[in-house]
Amino acid sequence: MKKAVVYLNQFFGQIGGEDVADHAPEIREEKVGAAMLYDQLLDAEVTHTVICGDNFMGSNTEEAVEIILDFLKDVDFDIFFAGPAFQAGRYGMACGEIGKAVKEEFDVPVISSMNIENPGVEVFKKDIYIFPGGHSAAKMRDDVKKITDFGNKILNGEKLLPAEEEGYYKRGIRHQYFLEDETPAYERAIDMLLKKINGEEFESELPIPELDLVEIAPAIEDLSETTIALVTSGGIVPVDNPDKIQSASATRWGKYDISGMDRLENRDSNNFKTIHAGYDPAAADADPNVVVPVDAMRKYEEEGRIGKLHDYFYSTVGTGTTQKEAARMGKEIAQELQDANVQAVILTST
């Protein structure tokens, strides 16, 4: 029987929630949590489960990868699964990081599942097989089924089809491939050309990946003449959350007056807290300046290094938030900043 290893985060590995997101990597010679579902669906036995906290992997990536590769070097396995990570950004990045490393080190197929909005897709789809998945764990069964079906095809040595047909995100890898109807390249090229000349739709066989970079804004010449605003996706708000910004998948943002404040006072003193549901709020609630550094900016203002810290900071929540909503909110905030004559921005994300 072939053997599989499954990678899960602290939550799906049944260690706990955000409070243990710093959990160091561990390996267990058993099926933990979602690994049991893999075991039922695979034509292989899941022999080990690797579990690592998302924050540990996010903040100590090299160390985490090294520890896990070390765990695995004496394990005999034919295939590696990570996730599903749904729309959880840190988990998706973690699955990608470890998946890529395992693929390189042990040269076994690595398969994961992530929602299209997960940043892990864009970063790692070229390195490992990633299948489109649901938004949340409600889709666990469907997502695991999809990737184990594909895993079984590989394990059983079946012929693999191009990305579109198998259903995973395109990796941008080119294979030599014979069409079933054997239409030669020159005929396809002429067909495509004619379509193009006639203004008809055609599909290129060599799509060029789009890079969506923004033109780099020029450097600020004299900071001491500049008004700088703080913007955050870390969900810092007044304790009563007056704009009712959602704790996840936010569609709203707020601006909060900090004129006359030397620092952001904390939740216990009834001032600012975080409503972000994607990380442990303890540190940010105790001292919101660790997310929105008003205190440090005031010091630079006092020293004359910057002209002025803008009277408001802008805040929303960046977990589960779609790129479309983030872009809209970014545009709206930019408009405010223009109206307020701000020249530069420090954006902090969590």
């Binding site: 804004a217 020029p218 872009a327 545009k331 930019a334 900043l337 701000v342 921005v345 420090i346």
Partner: peptide, 9 residues
């Protein structure tokens, strides 16, 4: 979006 609007960020 903030950089697109011309801010150094």
């Amino acid at each position: 979006e903030i950089e697109k609007a011309g801010f150094t960020v």
